[in-house]
Design a protein around this nucleic acid. Structure first.
Lengths: 160, 160
DNA sequence: CATTAAACTGAATAAAAATACAGATTAACT
DNA sequence: AGTTAATCTGTATTTTTATTCAGTTTAATG
């Protein structure tokens, strides 16, 4: 069921994505302009529920940003989630192409990101494929080995 | 040169990585236990400088976390929304990998697209990463320069 | 050195965000 | 419907964070 709260939180996400908002009072005003009668207290609660964060940009100005929630997991679990959803891993020039179970690519990429592996310049995920950019062909090959190792490590089905 | 401030900020990062800290007062106490006589005001300033954020975990508990900025944040003052959402920009062979604030990649890619820059063959965006394909390595490097310029556009004085 | 400017920091305070409390609304069940 | 429990939200307040102001230290230059 679609509640008023759902609509409100959706609008909050929309506004935060579209505008540079740096205080909850600002957000509250914007919400009112968009037809949502809310107070700062409610915005505070919604922001907390939605896991929205306040980031400080390099120019020392801060603003709210919507954070995707896959990021903060314990390392062990991370490796597990990652390795269990992988199907294959190959390199193509300086790119590593990882195949995952359907719908797992986002989670796998996010897990990979938080491992901070050497040579990973960046990752992009679709539904069942992750692209990883490496500096060059050599590094991409090295990454494939590393990831292959993790795939076998994760099969030792012991949990935390 | 290694200043007292450097040491202090390094310790702050260390403590935040190792402990679950949810207020600056907590951090201040921990700092004191580790031999750094600081006040909450200084912690606040350091946290801001370091781009450290406060995240709300899925269980609704919040804590500070070090946001990975890949170390190479571009200097200078950022102007518009596009450049404000960029964190870093590197090339890897013929690819340009752009890191953005969480949730900003789509917007950044779309903004980039509408600029019709030379050499941009195509872009694809995840949550906080944009891949840009260029015809070759040279062109990718040129693109990085162009984007770096945009990131520091509007700075008052020369670089630090 | 001496002088001036810049960077840094603490104490006090202002600004912003989170929450206790109470009333209102909704849900679930009899 | 009536009852109870749970969820939700605004007001007022507390808690937390950012900043102002003034004093200090550090750095740069004559």
């Amino acid at each position: 069921m679609r509640t008023a709260k759902n609509d409100r939180q959706e609008m909050i996400i929309k506004l935060i994505k579209e505008h540079d908002i740096s205080t909850q009072d600002e957000l509250t005003s914007l919400m009112k302009k968009n037809g949502f009668a809310v107070t700062q207290a409610t915005c505070s609660r919604d922001i907390k529920e939605l896991g929205i964060i306040k980031v400080t940009l390099p120019n020392q100005v801060s603003k709210y940003a919507v954070l995707d929630r896959t990021g903060d997991v314990a390392p062990g679990r991370l490796l597990n989630v990652f390795s269990n959803s992988l199907i294959s891993c190959k390199s193509a020039m300086n790119m590593v192409v990882i195949k995952t179970l359907p719908g797992m690519a986002q989670a796998a990429a996010s897990a990979l990101d938080s491992m901070h592996l050497q040579y990973v310049v960046g990752t992009i995920a679709g539904d069942d494929t992750v692209f990883v950019a490496a500096p060059g062909t050599e590094e991409a090959n090295a990454l494939v080995s590393t990831i292959d190792d993790m795939m076998s490590a994760g099969n030792m089905s012991s949990e935390e």
